[in-house]
Amino acid sequence: MEIELKDDERLDYLVDPQLKIIQSPSVFSFSLDAVLLSRFAYVPIQKGNIIDLCAGNGAVGLLLSQRSKAHVTMVEIQKRLSDMAQRSISLNGLEEQMKVVNGNIIDMPELLGHGRFDTVTCNPPYFRAVNKRDYNENEHLAIARHEIYCTLEDVISVSSQLLKQGGKAAFVHRPNRLMDILALMRKYRIEPKRLQLVYPKSGEEANLLLVEGMKDGKPDLHLLPPLTVYKENGEYTSELKKVFYGQ
């Protein structure tokens, strides 16, 4: 299928050579975080509704569509990024399974419905919005990385509102926000169930965390084995390859 590419956009494979995504170095490109979140999150296999918040150019949602036949809604506030995500949906022939909503996640419970979704995923902005000199000069990247239009509390509150009773929410974030994340999950009735730390190399500090909780679940947190990304020679570890490719 012919898809128009704009400015410096390019087509890349999204882990699976059958899945393609539109990227732009000056606007947004997916990262390891998105792939790990898409592999970590619970998804209903046959039917249901999944929503990916702060969707960027659509990497998480596209990867989730390969694991589930459920309908996938992606929410992205930046019009340029939501347009890239929509064209990637069309490129992969997934229009019947997926859609993109261009808007602020804060508005989604009223717009899309409370208690409607089986799964919520989110790769949110990692950095608090302190002042403008802390932002990347590129507006697209600044919005993606800093809590300009939504805070961590907004993300977790909205996720709770969107989830069905017993539904699951999965987040990827930085380890220095772990206590904030767990406290907010409990505050908004998403009981933490699974937690995994991700390490760039053996012997280094963790630089990512993956956490999943259940709406109104019972306390029962499982700490999963740590995931190390790179071997000393710079190649992916066997456990990372297993997560990525099922090897």
Rank of each mutant, 00 (worst) to 15 (best):
V158I: 07
V229I: 15
Q46I: 14
V155Q: 11
K168S: 00
R177S: 01
S68F: 10
L94R: 02
E137C: 04
P226A: 06
F171K: 00
G115K: 02
V243A: 04
I143N: 12
V120F: 09
V211N: 02
E110H: 13
L91V: 09
D118H: 12
G56L: 14
N176L: 05
M1C: 07
V100I: 13
E212W: 05
M1K: 11
H140R: 05
V198G: 06
V130G: 00
D118I: 04
E212A: 04
L224E: 12
E137V: 15
A85K: 08
Q18A: 15
N138T: 13
L53Q: 00
E95Y: 02
K47Y: 11
R145G: 11
K218R: 07
Q196K: 10
D8C: 01
R145N: 14
C150S: 13
S88H: 05
E139Q: 14
K241H: 13
A129H: 10
G234P: 08
N92H: 01
S24Y: 04
L81P: 04
V72Q: 04
L178D: 00
L197D: 03
P225G: 07
Q161R: 12
R186Q: 14
V211I: 15
D83H: 12
L112I: 00
M74W: 03
F117K: 07
D83C: 06
K99G: 05
R186H: 15
Y236S: 08
Y13S: 05
L195M: 09
I22C: 06
M1Q: 14
L208T: 00
V130F: 04
P226V: 09
K164T: 00
H114N: 04
K241R: 15
H222I: 14
T151L: 15
V172D: 00
E110F: 11
F127K: 01
Q78H: 11
D7W: 14
V75I: 05
L152A: 05
S26P: 03
P109W: 07
G246S: 10
E139M: 15
N233L: 07
R116A: 12
K99H: 05
I148L: 10
A70M: 12
P109R: 10
L62Q: 02
G48T: 09
L182P: 12
V35K: 03
C122P: 01
E232D: 15
C54R: 12
K20I: 08
L36D: 10
V15C: 08
S65L: 09
S82E: 08
S88M: 08
Y199W: 06
L63R: 05
D83L: 14
P225N: 03
Q247N: 13
V35P: 05
P25C: 10
P175D: 02
L240N: 03
G246M: 10
I77G: 00
I106Q: 07
Q23F: 13
P200W: 10
L227Q: 03
E9Q: 05
L14M: 05
G56D: 10
D16E: 15
G103C: 06
L32G: 11
T121P: 01
